[in-house]
Simulated assay, not measured.
Amino acid sequence: MIRIAIANQKGGVGKTTTAINLATALAATGWRVLLIDFDPQGNASTGLGVEKTDRERSSYELLRGDATLAEAVVATRVPRLDIVPATVDLSGAEIELIEVERRTHRLHEALAASEGQWDVCLIDCPPSLGLLTVNALVAANMMIVPLQCEFFALEGLSQLLQTIERVRARFNPQLSILGVALTMYDRRNRLSEQVAADVRAVLGDVVFDTVIPRNVRLSEAPSHGVPALIYDHRCPGSEAYIALARECITRLTKTAQAA
């Protein structure tokens, strides 16, 4: 199973929107997809229509070892897309696990016990570089970095890249960046163009060709409990995520062939 962490320590950059819609697009192509909501806010769960009453077992229990992956998984309305939902209890996990042995490998070990049921696992990380995000990076083979096309996003990128290098050095030398996804791009705003150009100049081919635009339909969809690709599959945001999914599949195929 391919494991992809969707991470950026800065909030509001489109991590959850990317996780939900990329997972939906991959499932639409025939992939069996597992989405792990690893953010205590539980927005990915809400965005896929999983009610709080249906979150008896969550990523919190999975991390603590109180539930297996099979016990925590909930089917979504999207065919071939399952989710491990999140609850606010997850916010206490960092403190509860502080004395636990191999606390950085809890998610990795939970996923390793259920290989083969899904083709790809996407992990929606919280907006921090704490224990939850480190667990996700240790468990993942690759990561996608959503990057908002605004000035402050560039400042946080260097900090995230340093964290990735530390995780590689100490825990997971196989971790690689599948791509950086430019989000909330406003073609009317010169700053968006400048940030996009700067990121491409620094990171080159690591940046996806697809750019996710600012789009009101992407913002409306979660309130209806469905991905934007189902809410309005013809809106610019949905079309962009479909294109991003194609790019991801192409990159994953090339990686597999090179291995």
Rank of each mutant, 00 (worst) to 15 (best):
A113S: 15
I95V: 15
C149I: 08
L132P: 04
S223G: 04
P173R: 06
R187Q: 11
N43C: 04
V138K: 03
C149R: 03
L252W: 01
R188D: 01
A228E: 00
N21I: 06
T24D: 05
A201M: 14
R77L: 13
L122Q: 04
Q148S: 11
T68W: 07
R32L: 11
V88F: 13
Q257G: 10
E99F: 07
E109R: 15
V207T: 02
T253W: 10
L252A: 04
Q117N: 14
A140G: 03
L147K: 03
A93C: 11
L107N: 10
A28C: 08
Y241G: 05
D82F: 06
A256M: 10
A86W: 08
L90N: 14
Q148T: 04
Q162K: 14
N135C: 06
A19Y: 01
V138D: 08
W118L: 04
R80N: 15
V120T: 03
I2F: 01
L69Q: 12
A197F: 08
P222A: 09
Q174W: 00
V78D: 06
R102N: 15
H105N: 10
V167R: 02
I164G: 02
A201P: 11
T250W: 01
P227V: 12
E165Y: 00
A136H: 04
T163F: 03
L111M: 13
T24N: 11
R106Q: 12
P127A: 08
G47I: 02
S176T: 01
A228R: 03
Y231T: 10
E61R: 04
S158V: 15
P79N: 13
